[in-house]
Design a protein around this nucleic acid. Sequence first.
DNA 1: CGAATAGTGTCTGTGAGACAGTATTCT
DNA 2: AGAATACTGTCTCACAGACACTATTCG
Lengths: 220, 220
Amino acid sequence: MHLEPRPFLTVDVVLLTIVSGELQLVLHRRKEPPFAGRVALIGGYVHPQEDATAAGAAERILREKAGIEARILDQLATFSGPARDPRGWSASIAYYALTPEISLKAAEAASLVLAPLAGTAALPFDHADIIGAARQRWRRRAAYSTLPAFLLAPQFTLSELRKVYELVLGRTLNDSAFRRKIDELRLIEPVDGAKSRNSDRPAQLYRLCETGVVEFDRTI
Amino acid sequence: MHLEPRPFLTVDVVLLTIVSGELQLVLHRRKEPPFAGRVALIGGYVHPQEDATAAGAAERILREKAGIEARILDQLATFSGPARDPRGWSASIAYYALTPEISLKAAEAASLVLAPLAGTAALPFDHADIIGAARQRWRRRAAYSTLPAFLLAPQFTLSELRKVYELVLGRTLNDSAFRRKIDELRLIEPVDGAKSRNSDRPAQLYRLCETGVVEFDRTI
DNA sequence: CGAATAGTGTCTGTGAGACAGTATTCT
DNA sequence: AGAATACTGTCTCACAGACACTATTCG
């Protein structure tokens, strides 16, 4: 019954970060065929001997190929079929990952390439589809969870938090309503005595109450 | 580089239906090892020669093992690892599927077994985890989409629709608020001249405006 | 007739947008 | 001083729950 060749199994990571106030995808330039030299999602084979799960493989590959430990790594969906990879029938388990701003020179050293999330660059495999799915999932989930906060450093001001939500949701939010909702949802707590001095006037720093993503019922 | 054995790839389907007013999982009794004779999710190998995608494999397996064409078949998540299946390192792409009430005798003929979704029967593999994930996803998505309607026949009354939402959400809904919201969202349209006579008083029959699932912003 | 379900109208509380207005610090 | 950002208070509208009320059909 199992004479047919098994499909091969990979993982691909849609890694997002913020660079100079814009949502950016972190891609990398492939070193090996197929599509050597092309820019693509960070991805690779699942190694059964080495990886405890597919998520473990994604973590390993992020570390090996980008030198990054993402703050969030969640499964998105699995893409499969005979045509998506020239090597044959394959399945790729796609993840999305979030990391706070990374240094540009570290990125270049690791052959990483930044691209605006909104852009539709020509990518190999079905990576454009994967990114499209990530964008959709990401936008919807961002509206009712603390996901966007993981694009910030662990301590942040309310303005920074609002701006990252605005960026992700693609619309402006009412400042006072935002403060009110965040307050009522009890998602964040002030860091005693810590003030940010990055803007005109010092602002209270906050941190998330929970270390993981929290989903809530209302929308932000 | 590829001397390691490839993981093997399966699909598993969490098939839901309604039987006598209760949400029921449709499981089946396995005929082959591992776990022959045990009740488990409907699932099987992806056949690269035969299946265009993993979703196609899930459709085929639903047809072959349950004789069912589901009205909804959506990907849930992929479960992987060395221990979830005694045959070795595996990945299973899990789907959830919805079908309106099925006849009990057809179910028995196909070795199908019904089990309440809420129950926690001892299942082989990691099928309990998969069902848990399905229940969670399903509940959340049901609150802001037309998903529950696909547990009904194509034509249904407003009461039936409300009751299926109540079943899925696990709480009662206010009848008048429900009518108002459904009306404003323009999700369904009346079927001219069609009246259901299943209850004390004839009721207007409706159908979905869209053939697929529609997601909306507000919650039901 | 009485029970049961279908369907409508209205009151009310709450959440969220809009926006004015105050406070604090920087240049 | 003036600009810019942080933060607060209030008004108002819209949505959702509650509930009363009418309508229609069945036993």
